[in-house]
Amino acid sequence: MNAFVADKALSSANPSADEDREVLLNVENVSLSFGGVKAITDISFDILKGEIRAIIGPNGAGKTSMLNVINGFYHPQEGTITWQGKVRNKIKPHEAVSQGIARTFQNVALFKGMSTLDNIMAGRSTRMKANIFFQMIWYGAAMREEIEHRKRVEDIIDFLEIQAIRRTPVGKLPYGLQKRVELARALAMEPELLLLDEPMAGMNLEEKEDMSRFIVDVNQEFGTTIALIEHDMGVVMDLSDRVVVLDYGKKIADGRPEEVQANQNVIDAYLGVAH
């Protein structure tokens, strides 16, 4: 883990790099409530193109709700979301996918009855075009398309080192691998912005190291912007370029990992305040 962490520290030690980056996603004054329960109150932050942006906070802080707002699963009552410079209207999750936003889930949400390969191929459904009659005949357009997408999927399988479980139904895989397949499925969507909801929850140290490596590789090799929710502070502080901290649905801090770490509000939120 240490080698790439040092690498990362070097790249983020260069502050001027951030300033020329364009804003990929801008969240402005977003509020979301379910009846009387306020999940998110007046939150604003931005995600720059190419960065790893962490969203942290204690349980119930509204982190997952925030991701759900970003990918169109929840619709905020107030506030605007600007995606690639354009103000985004109310969209459906599948529209978010075609705009380039993919995500993984806190509780693994794979298609349990399908093989690893099929799960990842399902991530490319929106890109496949051959109509139902070509699909019926198979030979010709449907097969060409299938093979073309299979090649892309195989690249991702190689990248995430899951060749051996290609044909295994995902329901039979151990938890760590399921998380990896889920990442593969999200990558198959070739997203601009990848939302990772606790990618390392419930993993052992070795699996966490692997996952961290993959996240950094995805970010650096594919140039994918990543927004990540994670509870492991070591991982968050090492991986992310910038961190936004939520507590009770409000933003309490935003900045570089070392700034956030030193912020008194953040320390209070995590450790509590003496009364």
Binding site: P93, H94, A102, F105, F111, A122, T126, R185
Partner: peptide, 18 residues
């Protein structure tokens, strides 16, 4: 794959763009 994804977990299917 679209059908099986809908069967196995419809919310996730929607979020992968189906």
């Amino acid at each position: 794959r679209m059908w099986k994804a809908t069967r196995d977990m419809d919310i996730a299917a929607e979020l992968v763009g189906i």
